[in-house]
Design a protein around this nucleic acid. Sequence first.
DNA 1: CGTGGCCTTGAAGTAAATCAACACCAGTGG
DNA 2: CCACTGGTGTTGATTTACTTCAAGGCCACG
Lengths: 235, 235
Amino acid sequence: MDQSRFEGTTELAQACRVCLCRDTALFRDLSDEELTRFGQLQIIDVGFSPGDILYRQGDPGQAVFMIRDGLVKLEQFLPDGSQRIVRLVRGGTAIALEALLGTDCEHQAVALRPTSVCRLSCEVLQRIEGETPRLHRQLMAFWHASVAEADKWLTLLSTGSARVRVARLLLLLSDGEASFEMLSREDIGAMLGTTTETASRIIAEFRRDDVLRVVGVRRFTVNRTALMLISGPVV
Amino acid sequence: MDQSRFEGTTELAQACRVCLCRDTALFRDLSDEELTRFGQLQIIDVGFSPGDILYRQGDPGQAVFMIRDGLVKLEQFLPDGSQRIVRLVRGGTAIALEALLGTDCEHQAVALRPTSVCRLSCEVLQRIEGETPRLHRQLMAFWHASVAEADKWLTLLSTGSARVRVARLLLLLSDGEASFEMLSREDIGAMLGTTTETASRIIAEFRRDDVLRVVGVRRFTVNRTALMLISGPVV
DNA sequence: CGTGGCCTTGAAGTAAATCAACACCAGTGG
DNA sequence: CCACTGGTGTTGATTTACTTCAAGGCCACG
């Protein structure tokens, strides 16, 4: 928030035309004419550093956030103060969609890596939505992605032994890339529903067994086939 | 499926006008005129008995199901054959929403109690959607409900000790009603990510401690204050 | 050169899985 | 009617997995 690296409303039709959003996201289906028209509206480009809070649980929902690049955790707090990370989101994801329904924010969103975001004010989105039904399909796709991701976390990251769950998480984190930046043990615990100690122990074990290899500060490569063996008793 | 108790396409504008859907659900915002118009379309009223499968994971998504009454579990299978119940849904919920996006069914839906359902074919819904933007808001509300429920399950039913999770589940199951019908220990295990034995042991313990009381075959009443004490170290 | 934050590790205790047996009941067929 | 069966729930004994509590290491940072 306070540590935002850049922020502005400058010529957004222009910005969106070139930015990632154009290809992957919300306005993909809009014509150039429409884009130009909406460009006048309040769409704000924001940057966050690791640890920055995009919004807090219970905040009035006034905007949807379109992640352009980076990594963000969505966490929920229980009445007793404990917390659980319910999802990680990367570039191409829309979060705080509940704002469109006038609901308060249901999660706290915290950047885990340097992250750039489009902040789309709700009123604007609702206006656009009324005018261009094509946006609906896109919005539905984002809703769908949220549900699918939530279900995936439940089945993959909350089922089975801690060892299996860590393996599955590492597979997800390392997906596609050659190496990846490890998260804090505390976050891993909060994602898997374990203590930080068990997360640490299992990761240490994976390193000893050469399933994980250190390639830099907090950077690792994984042995995907080994992880798949651990994660799924595929018989 | 084969055990459907009733099924038909009879005068649906009429049916919807009187059925629960009218008040709680998808077409709540439509005018009578619109309802009549859509009544000609393919909306099928189906009944299921406990154990019946509404649809299977991987089925081509051709329809959205609006639960009118009853109880349905949504489960996902892991490659190794194990499974996890990701949500329970009751009357007033829409499921298989992913069908609207042309995706295959992501869950298997199984009735746990006698259940009545409106089956809304996708093409129809999409056509209606194009004509009446008001339906969007309603659809978004259903998407939102799915995400919110999924997140709730993750935070409440997959976090903490088995005892705490069982307590939270019982609070959810008994919500509002004086007594409720207990689910099989196997299903409870599949919801909480435990074995059936631990589910059984904890429920037996709750009975011994008078937190649960038997009031009929598979029917129980709960001591909600006791459960709340167990479920949340609310300090 | 401390200091604080994160990670690791150990030892001990506890919670849950596992394996196995049995009770209970509804349904089935003698 | 009884004996048999399969499904579901309960319970016990044992092993294993995880938490808890505690200590110490490592490293970035002031």
